[in-house]
Amino acid sequence: MGLLTLQNQTEDDDFALNACIENARNVTHILKAVHFKDTATVFATENGLKVTVEDSKCIQGNAFIQDQVFQEYSIRDEALTFQINLDILLECLNIFGSNNSTTTMRMMYNGYGTPLVLMLEEDGAVTDCSIRTMEAEETLDFEFTAANVVNKIIMKADCLREAFNEMDASSEVLQITMSPDPPHFRLATFGLLGQSHQDIPKNSDMVEYFECNETLTNRYRLNLLKPSVKAVNLACKVCVRVDHRGFLSLQHMIKNENGQICFVEYYCCPDEEFDEPAT
């Protein structure tokens, strides 16, 4: 019933982007995984939506919501790009927010300079939101290509989640070692109370795929990597990749309530070594 009522209201309008989903939580869920900054850039193509969030020009989170996730998805132009306040978008999506019933959502956008219109319905109550969009700025290109990947491990998210939870938060950096020889995969921190490291050997049950060609050790700012914990918490599997420059890519496989799989990807650049020793 929900979908129908929302449909009738929009029949006559022809929007540049028009998407409808029976369970708005499937969208909310994925967006939460990249919610570490207020401003997000949305790219819409015929394949779906990509939502990009960046911080300090060093880390980028991308959430992909493919068109199949929506019950209805149509786009007039080839590609649409706009910036939006993610905080507000999530508040609006979550406006009914009860866990027992589902919110139906229709999302409409009519091109440059127009607001993003959301229509949400739950139990006969309807919410209309109109969120101002902003001009899209260029997003970072990490030039991370599969051909340059040196080491790659796919593992269950559980073990990475635990590793992140137990990590020493007083450390400024996280050192990731990936190697064909033991310890295979090592997360090390250097905190106020000393060093600690966690190893995951390649024959562990948690590791599903292991392909390491070289021993690479790189440091990443822990506070930059922290937002990716949000994605790890929702994911079922994580693919960790490092390229020859030490750039890190974390791909999170997230299952939504309909059993569909969505991806959230994080790129992070390594911490440059300076003369003074890192603490």
Binding site: C92, T127, D128, C129
Partner: peptide
């Protein structure tokens, strides 16, 4: 507000 307007409606 400047950024957003949201209206929740109930009827009947």
């Amino acid at each position: 507000t400047e950024l957003v307007s949201a209206t929740t409606r109930f009827s009947d």
